[in-house]
Design a protein around this nucleic acid. Structure first.
Lengths: 326, 326
DNA sequence: ATGAAAGCGCTAACAG
DNA sequence: CTGTTAGCGCTTTCAT
């Protein structure tokens, strides 16, 4: 493999000079610069990035941690984040943890060792104190999940979103609502708080039911089948937590000839395209994921360039998308 | 930051010894090994990976190149591939190109510079000769797309899959079929060949129609609306190319009161969960993505460990999932 | 079994 | 403007 030395020799200059032109330094005579440039061109030389990174202690790589990529919400979030990073000239590197603590810690370790210049965490499997401790490894911002940490956290106002959706169902006269979470997490709990808050307004907080681990279409089908089996479910409204789960529920409803929304209303979350084509079309909630992703990288940029950075807790409000499932 | 020197000094040994225990070498006295180990433990020392990688010219990182992650098919493929890599003890690093040549070339450059030990390419934006040239950078295997290259390529037998699906439609008496591709690529063309082959058997190859750039639910809705607008479409069967596109078409069909499959049959591709809940449920094709992903990494392993490696062209056959849309 | 020494390829003072 | 020098943190001969 060709090195900086080779082309230095070839051009009759020192390797510092080559390094200088490589790094766009001033103070290199135009003549030598051209000579070096053409030698590089001619030989097809590429600097050894591993050496450069090692030397500079810097990679411009940003890690994006996500539970998994094959999940409609995280896929779109990760994509927005990647694009925002690329736009800043960083290299986004996606890491999937599958909820595994060790994998997550491995990524944080990379930050400590400067394999990564920063990390954007969309969701963590670690318990709060441990995560708080990891934050000391370097710039770790949180995008999506709402952790109470001493770092910048950008998240959706899930409480308000859930309140809005729930209130919307309640106003159509529904009284016995079921709330689905995918997994327990601060955001999901915030959502649940919003749900309860709406119920409380109508004095219905007593009857609140919740069910966890609902994430896929299949989960929705399963839940719906169980609920609607005897056509005498006590539930008359379901807060599904994701459009996919809601789509599964709607499917089960149709199979069991439960009319939606008359007999049972259903709301989704995320405003994924699937919500347009369910029968009936799904009432859902649209969040400004792209805006949140962009702001997260903007904040990371501030932190990386180091001027006067202070952690912020930012919240995004989305909007209700009313359709015919309510 | 702590280095290997620090703990060498602390233990009163040379840094070579520390390096040896770090790398699990033999020939280190049990006594010193323990001493070093406990010093590492105590100080929380982690070797600087950038330095290690630089020195060893090896990162154990495998790049996975994909057009984008927010796409049901690629998301699931990437996930399978990631898992398979992780199972081998490698670090899967996902790169999205968004069909951009430069981004793709950037990743190949990382291979040349040993930032990556290998690459798994799911789809390329480069023209064949250029891609062929890139293959010389190091181990680049192809998983999914069917390029005629001098490297291992694992792909689905799209031609046979399309033939099966098409034949299936034809056997129900359909005659005027429309074929949708997402983008032109060898695999997609192979699919189209299978489609034509089936038509030819029935002497219907003349009337074959194809349309490109169909990838999302929305694309499907748009296409369906156009086709069904006057309720007098000449098309009586649609080969949709993906379950999402098919779902959009089915939605449009219902809106325009076109009965499926009577008036127009529709087939999907991928057997994504969404295919279960469309109305009617979607006839689709299930491919063994996970198996293909696993074999790809197994082949990469062979190549990386270097014993007697020869490029192979492997093909996976899936199976028809007949449902009520045909 | 272990230490000394020689780099990996590159950058960054420092001294002209 | 440019070359010399001194490493970055680690691995790996090569002696011992």
């Amino acid at each position: 493999m060709r090195t900086i030395n080779d082309i230095a020799r070839q051009c009759g200059v020192s390797k510092s000079t080559v390094s200088r032109v490589l790094n766009g330094h001033p103070y290199v005579s135009e003549q030598k610069r051209q000579k070096v440039l053409s030698a590089i061109e001619e030989t097809g030389f590429t600097p050894n990035n591993l050496a450069v990174q090692f030397r500079k202690r810097k990679t411009s790589a940003i890690g994006i941690i996500t539970p998994q990529v094959d999940h409609p919400y995280f896929a779109s979030l990760v994509q927005s984040l990647s694009n925002a990073c690329a736009a800043k000239g960083w290299k986004p590197v996606i890491f999937q943890t599958f909820g595994d603590k060790k994998r997550e810690l491995d990524v944080f370790a990379k930050l400590k060792q400067r394999e990564l210049d920063g990390i954007i965490l969309t969701s963590s499997a670690l318990e709060a104190p441990l995560l708080a401790h990891c934050l000391e490894n370097g710039p770790i911002l949180i995008c999506n999940e709402k952790y109470e940490m001493d770092t910048t956290v950008c998240s959706l106002d899930e409480e308000s979103a859930a309140y809005t959706l729930t209130m919307h169902m309640l106003q159509t006269g529904k009284k016995r609502l079921l709330f689905c979470l995918d997994q327990t997490s601060p955001s999901q709990e915030a959502r649940y708080r919003g749900f309860l808050k709406a119920l409380a307004v109508k004095n219905l907080a007593e009857g609140a039911k919740r069910i966890e681990a609902m994430v896929t279409i299949e989960d929705g089908i399963r839940l719906g089948s169980e609920l609607f089996r005897n056509n005498q479910s006590l539930i008359d409204g379901i807060f599904a937590g994701s459009d996919f789960v809601a789509a599964g529920i709607l499917h089960a409803a149709k199979q069991h000839q439960i009319s939606v929304p008359e007999k049972c209303a259903v709301t989704g979350f995320d405003n994924h395209p699937i919500s347009r084509i369910t029968d009936p079309p799904l009432t859902t909630y649209d969040n400004e994921i792209a805006a949140m992703a962009q702001e997260t990288t903007a904040q990371l940029d501030l932190q990386l360039t180091g001027h006067s950075y202070v952690p912020k807790h930012l919240l995004w409000k989305g909007y209700l998308v009313p359709r015919n499932s309510t």
